Computed example of a mutant assay.
Amino acid sequence: MDQKIVAITGAFGILGSAVSDHFADLGWKVARIDYAPAPKDEEGYFGGLDLTNQEIAEAAWQKVLAEIGKPNALVNIAGGFVWEKLSDGGPGTWERMFRMNTLTAVTMCKVALDTLAGQPGAAIVNIGAGAAANADAGMGAYAASKAGVARLTESLAAELAGKDVTVNAILPTIIDTPTNRADMPDADFSSWVQPREIARVIAFLASDEARAITGASIPVSRGTA
């Protein structure tokens, strides 16, 4: 059988690296895409790409097709987080969160649609957030942008109902990363979700075993440290 290919955005960060490495360990060929500069000058690393820009996203996808091949799966991890009360911020933060979390997923889904629709057993997996369902103080902009990812997931799954493409999202709670530990040093880290566990859930949703699942937003909330 031909080697499967996955394109992963936000692939140079802690979570993106864990997901990319997990797919590689499973035998997939990985196209790693990110806004940050590529950490390695190697095949499969595509850096310095502003995926909020439709033309740049399209060019990035065409480069993946030319250098890596036609992906069987797209994983949208690119995004960011800001904790800010409305009294301390305003529309600028909301726009920034929308662009980083929602628009990057929209543009990449858009440019990947034709390719994925032509691949048997294709999958899109988006990264939402558990906080999107119930935003606490300071979480409004972030939660709203991740709620947009959930609605994109549901709507796109319905659009592709007649195609062999599944579209799902995962909803992590706090992810155990060095940045989150530094920001919340007094928290119980054992309750936080490990990047490797998120990677396993994403890989399952991209696998043949998950073909009956589409349009779902799946909580990933159990710490396994």
Rank of each mutant, 00 (worst) to 15 (best):
L86W: 05
G148C: 08
N76I: 03
A129G: 10
T166M: 05
A158V: 07
A187D: 14
G13D: 10
G47P: 07
V201E: 02
D183F: 11
S145I: 02
A78S: 10
A112G: 12
G79Y: 09
T179E: 14
A135E: 14
K146S: 07
V106W: 13
A206P: 00
A143S: 15
S87M: 12
N72M: 07
A216E: 01
L113V: 08
A182F: 07
D34Q: 04
I68H: 03
A216R: 02
G140Q: 13
I124R: 01
N126W: 04
G27V: 07
G162D: 15
S190D: 15
V64Q: 14
E43T: 12
V165A: 06
I8V: 14
E95P: 00
P120K: 10
R222P: 00
G89F: 01
A158F: 08
M100D: 05
V167D: 09
D2N: 14
A18C: 09
A212T: 12
R200L: 11
A123D: 00
S145Y: 12
K40Y: 06
V201Q: 12
A117H: 01
I213N: 13
D208R: 09
T9G: 08
K110E: 02
W61Q: 05
I213T: 12
G148S: 10
P91G: 07
A144W: 02
A169V: 02
K63D: 14
G215W: 03
R96L: 11
V82Y: 09
A24W: 00
A182L: 11
I68W: 02
A78F: 05
K146Y: 14
G138I: 05
G138Y: 08
D21V: 01
V149W: 13
M139N: 13
G16H: 05
V125N: 03
A117M: 15
A161P: 01
L65P: 00
W61G: 01
N53T: 05
L49K: 11
E154C: 02
V30G: 02
M97F: 06
M97Q: 15
P178L: 08
D188R: 11
L116W: 03
K40S: 09
F81D: 06
A133T: 10
D186E: 15
P120F: 07
N76V: 04
A66L: 06
R181G: 10
I68N: 05
G79V: 04
T173W: 00
F98D: 01
I213W: 10
A57L: 09
V106D: 01
E154K: 15
G48L: 01
M108R: 10
F204T: 00
L65C: 08
G13Y: 02
T93M: 08
A212H: 08
W61C: 03
K163V: 06
S190Y: 05
D50A: 06
L113A: 13
G90I: 08
R99P: 00
S191H: 01
K4V: 00
Y35G: 03
D136T: 03
P178N: 02
V167S: 11
A147G: 15
G47C: 07
L171S: 11
A135C: 11
V19I: 15
D50G: 02
W94F: 15
L156R: 03
T102F: 15
I33P: 11
T173Q: 01
A31F: 01
N72H: 15
T177A: 10
I68T: 13
G10E: 03
A137W: 12
Y142F: 15
N101S: 07
